[in-house]
């Protein structure tokens, strides 16, 4: 195991680091109680980047050891697996903090914020503020009210020495910021340094965690699949006069299947229909019941 990079992230700063396939990026608390924002891009194609939404649906709001970080659709593949997480208080619900947040909430003209820190850090690799995306929030202790859906932030319970380690499944640019929010609860109202390190995975870790490089699903699209392969360079949008729509699976055609039910079964169907919530007609009720049964018994639970 070799440590390739060992860097102290001072409060108010961030850093972009290359993490190659099979390497482990580690973010560590030096004093405790500090939130870190984590962005990631495919090192060889920055248009593939980490996606909170897909990750949230597959692993929940609070990913921890054993969970994966996914790239955005249409690429949609595991970028990292979290292989260690000593505190287990991470978040995928909050967006990165921004200058606007501190301006409207508190009247600051200038205030440390993750959007600006991440943008400045990734500028080292030619990326722009528009390329910053919503973060995996390490050590952000959030709660969701089950009734209202409102989000809240609670005190950061991480301690000095707590760390999160992620193994990269392909070459990535990782960008980490010391979250600049000191007038919210996120980091217990003070900004503190973090350690950022990159090391090679051990042979055992590679066997246990590293996924094969080949894509697993045809719908994990690559640039070769795109009808337009070039990255836009103009900011202005204009219509392509030669455009002809070509939606996959279009057009949708329906057919009718006659299903014969026993009198007993038909009485059950009538009961469902009069109960309500399954559809207005016999056919709708049967279709609802059938596909609900399919979801429960035939769907693959997890990619």
């Amino acid at each position: 195991m070799t440590i390739r990079l060992d860097h102290v992230l001072e409060p108010g700063s961030g850093k972009a680091v290359e993490v190659r396939r099979g390497e482990v990026v580690r973010v560590e608390q030096l004093e405790g109680g500090q939130c870190a924002d984590f962005n990631a891009f495919n090192l060889h194609d920055y248009r593939e980047f980490f996606h909170c939404g897909r990750t949230r649906v597959l692993h929940g709001m609070f990913p921890t050891a054993g969970d994966m970080l996914w790239s955005a659709p249409p690429r949609e593949r595991p970028m990292f697996t979290i292989i260690a997480d000593t505190a287990g208080i991470n978040d995928l619900s909050f967006p990165r903090c921004t200058g606007v947040l501190f301006e409207y909430a508190w009247g600051y003209e200038t205030h440390t914020n993750c959007q600006d820190i991440l943008a400045e850090a990734e500028r080292e690799y030619g990326l722009t503020p528009d390329d910053v995306h919503d973060s995996f929030n390490l050590w952000m202790n959030t709660k969701i009210d089950a009734d209202t859906g409102r989000l809240s932030v609670e005190r950061n319970t991480s301690q000095a020495g707590d760390y999160v380690e992620l193994v990269a499944h392909f070459d990535c640019l990782v960008v980490v910021s010391v979250c600049g929010a000191d007038v919210f609860n996120t980091s217990n109202f003070s900004l503190k340094p973090l350690r950022l390190a990159v090391r090679t995975a051990t042979a055992d870790e590679r066997v246990e965690w590293l996924l094969p490089e080949a894509r697993r699903f045809a719908n994990q699209r690559v640039v070769e699949d795109f009808k337009i392969k070039e990255i836009r360079t103009e900011r202005e949008l204009s219509r392509d006069p030669t455009y002809v729509a070509d939606f996959p699976g279009f057009p949708i055609r329906t057919t009718s299947v006659e299903v014969e039910l026993t009198d007993d079964e038909y009485r059950q169907l009538e009961a469902l229909r009069s109960h309500g919530g399954f559809g207005a007609t016999d056919g709708e009720v049967l279709r609802h019941a059938f596909f609900t049964w399919c979801l429960d018994h035939w769907m693959q639970p997890h990619p």
Binding site: I252, T254, T255, V257, E258, E265, Y266, L269, R287
Partner: peptide
């Protein structure tokens, strides 16, 4: 029994 027509795509 009873015949029920189910529309599917």
């Amino acid at each position: 029994g009873q015949l029920v027509a189910v529309e599917i795509n």
